[in-house]
Design a protein around this nucleic acid. Sequence first.
DNA 1: GCTTAAACGAGACGGTACGTCCGGTCTTGTC
DNA 2: GACAAGACCGGACGTACCGTCTCGTTTAAGC
Lengths: 194, 194, 194, 194
Amino acid sequence: MKPPNAARRSQRSHRAILEAAYELALDRGPAKVTIDAIAARAGVGKQTIYRWWPSKGALLLDVLIDAVGAVSEMPDTGDVVADLTTQMTAVTDLFRSDFARFYTGLIAEAQADDAVARGLAEQLADRAEGPRRQRLEKAQRDGQIRADVDIAAAVEALYAPLYYRMLLRTAPLSVDHVHAVIDATIKGLRPNPV
Amino acid sequence: MKPPNAARRSQRSHRAILEAAYELALDRGPAKVTIDAIAARAGVGKQTIYRWWPSKGALLLDVLIDAVGAVSEMPDTGDVVADLTTQMTAVTDLFRSDFARFYTGLIAEAQADDAVARGLAEQLADRAEGPRRQRLEKAQRDGQIRADVDIAAAVEALYAPLYYRMLLRTAPLSVDHVHAVIDATIKGLRPNPV
Amino acid sequence: MKPPNAARRSQRSHRAILEAAYELALDRGPAKVTIDAIAARAGVGKQTIYRWWPSKGALLLDVLIDAVGAVSEMPDTGDVVADLTTQMTAVTDLFRSDFARFYTGLIAEAQADDAVARGLAEQLADRAEGPRRQRLEKAQRDGQIRADVDIAAAVEALYAPLYYRMLLRTAPLSVDHVHAVIDATIKGLRPNPV
Amino acid sequence: MKPPNAARRSQRSHRAILEAAYELALDRGPAKVTIDAIAARAGVGKQTIYRWWPSKGALLLDVLIDAVGAVSEMPDTGDVVADLTTQMTAVTDLFRSDFARFYTGLIAEAQADDAVARGLAEQLADRAEGPRRQRLEKAQRDGQIRADVDIAAAVEALYAPLYYRMLLRTAPLSVDHVHAVIDATIKGLRPNPV
DNA sequence: GCTTAAACGAGACGGTACGTCCGGTCTTGTC
DNA sequence: GACAAGACCGGACGTACCGTCTCGTTTAAGC
């Protein structure tokens, strides 16, 4: 009795809800989007939203997946440093766009809603971290990355600073910042052996 | 005429509010704390809260400052790697404690409230990043850290992964994680020369 | 779009609200009845009250209409003085009962709320003054009342003193008072001719 | 310890409060006057109001006494019907002026505040009904009013309709209304004996 | 004329109720 | 049976006033 029959789901309503939620989230921030407003803009009954999503966060997560798709493809020119620079710059641009508001809002939602947190972590691991790790693992096999380095830690040392600045706003994101992080991480912090 | 006379502020109420907010935030999460509940638990009129804080986030920020105090002191044994290990392990422990729930909730609040975002960034820059940078700068002067490295980027490469895991929960925080991040960052990702 | 769809109104809630309001008004006086208390006692959301009534006074007016029904029937024994005595005594009894508190409270409300004033005046004109005038007009046709007397003024001369004492409390309402007013008004104040 | 020393009372504040209350009551209705607003407009601390008056109603009652003074003097030309016509017309004019709003508001206040009700009844009995009864008693002695009529009832039959229309607004006050009431009451309702 | 206790202005305080907003559920037709 | 519409209960919001309670500051009485 709980799960409704997905086969009878109205595709028209489904799409209208995702689009309404996305538009509202962009223009007032996800925290200020209400289910009422989404339903009204989508021309949909509130029950239809509650029928298919357990919470506002879950809906926003679907909106994210729907809107973003496969954003994080890693280039592979053979030069891992160049590729990281390219891709981290792209991420920085994304994190400075209107989309950031949506993304940070969703992360905020995840702090109070475990289902959203799990979905978001999974999404992040699969779509974002996965390709990054694979690229670094390839570079490791190519001898461009030290063989005994922990790949997960390496990805985080490179990318976490971008999320950190987006979320905590201690300093602005910039291309210079990308270069500085790559320089520090690739070359390492200890003095160059002579 | 707008700002109330701070000299007449009731210290008793002020403390009771901070304590009530802290206790409530710990036991149900900051997002579910209501001004009504804080006022009731503190034995205070709601107006007294609204008189002195512009938003729930601003109050929680004060609670953070009040509750945490000087948490982030950097040790200085002369060995920067040992000191980073010590301190990052302490931060990891903090980020795995009940306090994390409070902290992430406040960061969530900051995503929808610019004043909180600013206050939090300032707090973070002054109390957390400051000592970390100073320790690395000293290590730089001591020759333990490469002279041309960007200190801000270095601090982020080391610490941002801790915030990243606390907030995004892609993987658990652990002592091993701390070691992996330090190894990757200190030694760097490129193959050891020689 | 503003007025809600009356067809979908919950009869259960409607009745519960009227009854809760009536009980609360009787036991603490209409001025001290709050919308919060009515909603709580009726087991109803406050919005449901605000959806259907524009003000507390409007609700109390509906309560009056609901509670009183057809109180003011005029008897007709053929003897207009006897009938007036009977009916004014009944009104006096009503104005000395607990109901008076409710009624005076509603009249008080009307002094600050024009909609209530209009509703109350209409109610009074239709349900109370109407039958009284009709009885006097019949008596006029029967030759028991002087043909050239202004019926509206006559009704007021007889009944206004009852409202006056209920509201201003310069002296108590009583059967003797009824007799005195009827005597003064029916026989008139000027000396008996002859 | 309770009653403050009246000798030290500030006349300046006393007057300012009465005036502020009167002005505010006229321009927004007594029900919407707040102690806060009176204090602010009078340039007076709220405590000063609470020190000298037990309730808003009590203050408004003093305002009434202060503002109205001896309004209800009865003329005495020797012709009681002419005198009643003159004076009831004056009362009607007063009840149609801005003052009516103030007066009805105070009567409304009295319905929920016994002290105000008592004060108002006393005021009414002394200042308004007293002179009216005395005039009718004189007329009785002069043979213009039937000897066995109840004077209190007679005064009410004449004047209560004016209060009734002011408070209940079933019909407008007017000179014609005054004439009709006087005609009905003086001549009486029963047919003229032939 | 000096002292001192009161009454005063200002306004912060603990509370209560306001009228609004929204979350999540339930109900009533329609398709 | 999923849907659009929207009424419903509940509960938090931020505001307005209540009546009480400090705070200094006049101010007028009595020494």
